[in-house]
């Protein structure tokens, strides 16, 4: 059993600030973390390894600093780590990213055939949920998205049964491995790193692959060249033409608010008053 878990190093979006004057992102000092959704995928992979044996390889594409994310994954118990990094990947959109990752997974499988590829359901910086499906299609693997639970795995017959969150319910699906699974959040919790694994992580030689080592055959499918989409504009949202009417209420008395806010608002929106009166208890 060999599971590849695709992870991404992302800026901790809770700590991103926008410069109030220039509207540019202030990246300085924003800590880089492992995409939180990917940790659910990694934990699920580690659990399967605990149960069925085998190896867990973590894979990421990114700048050299993304090595830290892989080391973190090793400290949780992953066996191997591969960083795909090359200038040709700069500016990749989701289609180009899926090409690079799929190539790298093919390379990894030369070492030991890959049975399962896991990813988080999406990242917190891009929020697209597109790379997982993209990798699956490029590797011609069955795709199972938003999986909340692996019910059973039959390593003899290469079969897996999972529960998949769908609109309005849960689908129970059976498919053949190898397949790609995007793991839904909230159904497991990342284990603590053991002392032994932390030591191992600090000394582990992360495999650092350039485009050739990652098996990239066609560089025009990578980076900006391989990306059908381009960002044509980045901007801050515009305030409404009319700013909020500021209600003065120094006393915070209900009577005051009745006059200053409610009377005014309902005068302008009589339908709203009726709507509320109808339903309110």
């Amino acid at each position: 059993m060999h599971i590849v878990v695709c992870i991404k190093q992302v800026p901790d979006s809770a700590q991103i600030r926008v410069h109030p004057v220039t509207n540019t992102i202030m990246r300085q000092g924003v800590p880089a973390i492992v995409n939180p959704y990917d940790l659910y995928a990694l934990e699920e992979a580690l659990r399967l390894k605990d149960q069925y044996g085998g190896r867990v390889t973590v894979l990421t594409m990114g700048p050299p600093m993304a090595e830290a994310a892989l080391r973190k994954a090793i400290s949780y118990g992953a066996d191997d780590a591969v960083l795909v990094t090359d200038r040709v990947f700069a500016g990749s959109d989701t289609l180009a990213t899926s090409y690079a990752l799929a190539s790298a997974i093919s390379q990894i499988s030369k070492d030991m055939p890959v049975d399962l590829v896991f990813t988080g359901k999406q990242t917190i910086d891009g929020d697209t949920a597109q790379v997982g499906p993209g990798v699956a299609k490029r590797l011609d693997m069955q795709l199972l998205t938003y999986v909340s639970k692996v019910r059973s795995l039959d390593t003899e017959n290469d079969e897996i049964v999972v529960e998949r969150r769908s609109e309005g319910g849960v689908q129970v699906l059976k498919t053949s491995t190898p397949c790609l699974i995007t793991v839904l959040e909230g159904n497991n919790e990342m284990r603590f790193a053991t002392m032994a694994n932390m030591f191992r992580a600090s000394r582990y030689p992360v495999k650092i692959w350039n485009k050739d080592e990652a098996g990239i055959e066609d560089v025009t499918k990578t980076g900006l060249k391989g990306s059908p989409t381009v960002v044509s504009k980045v901007f801050a949202p515009t305030p409404r033409a009319v700013k909020a009417e500021i209600i003065q209420c120094e006393s915070n008395e209900p009577g005051d608010l009745s006059v200053t806010l409610l009377a005014k608002m309902f005068n302008k929106h009589p339908k709203l008053e009726k709507e509320i009166a109808k339903r309110a208890v």
Binding site: K243, S258, I276
Partner: peptide, 26 residues
Amino acid sequence: FDFAHYGIVGNAMTILPALTEAFKAH
């Protein structure tokens, strides 16, 4: 306040109960 229609500047912990009472009465 750039995109709200009505804004109340103040402590939500005292304004919310007042607003609740005001709606009730109204």
